[in-house]
Design a protein around this nucleic acid. Structure first.
Lengths: 120, 120
DNA sequence: CGGTATCCCACTGGATACTG
DNA sequence: CAGTATCCAGTGGGATACCG
């Protein structure tokens, strides 16, 4: 069951890009990491509703696909830091117009936003 | 079940945009229609591998979401033409940078492309 | 803290056959 | 021509429990 990076065959560039960001949380992970390096638990807090399993799974796929860099510090307690690669940062930048269109659509149809942080 | 347009709640603009283009063929449909008005059968030919069911289903969802316009001509034989709405055209434009990134990625990793048109 | 390992269900999408 | 109607397999993703 899967392993290496996704590698087509593709119909076009959109196809290849979508292949790599399809997944409920991937674009949000990209966005979170664009603010800077984040630890696993920080990402969890920034992505309200994500399960550990999905977060790990998406991060692994994005690592394999060359979008995120994963650095393990063998300390006690363990620490792992995630950051964007160049390709990941470029992808995030390429997503900006799409995000702008989406924001516009939200306004047009008056769609609700989820509460950013349901605090604690 | 289902029916009305997708309407969140959303986490951000990307979330809203992805909600509307998720589906194996939607971005390709957008691309096809950006070239101009297309009939159902022309779209099928332009999307090698799509099934009738999926094409209809995606077109209906995109119509409901306000991305494509569907015009029925009650003739014999029946004719139906699809075209982009303003929102659909704007979305397609917003996808351009993503497509460029994807094309770049295809080159970087040397991913194969599917044969554009297996003719007949 | 930062994960693995299972189980399970809903949904996506493909194949095929039929229709106005 | 432009769809509907079914059936069915694969996968995405949530819940829960356990581990170094």
């Amino acid at each position: 069951m899967s392993s290496g990076p996704r590698q087509g065959p593709y119909i076009c560039g959109i196809d290849a890009a979508m292949d790599v960001i399809t997944g409920k949380w991937k674009s949000l992970i990209l966005w979170e990491l664009d603010h800077g390096t984040r630890r696993f638990s920080a990402l969890r807090r920034g992505l309200p509703g994500v399960s550990e399993k999905m977060l790990v799974q998406h991060l692994r796929e994005m690592e394999v696909d060359g979008l995120v860099h994963r650095e393990v510090f063998r300390e006690v307690p363990p620490r792992v830091e995630y950051s964007l690669t160049e390709a990941g940062a470029a992808l995030n930048a390429a997503l900006a117009p799409l995000g702008a269109w989406g924001t516009d659509r939200i306004k047009r149809i008056g769609a609700p936003m989820v509460a950013p942080h349901t605090t604690p």
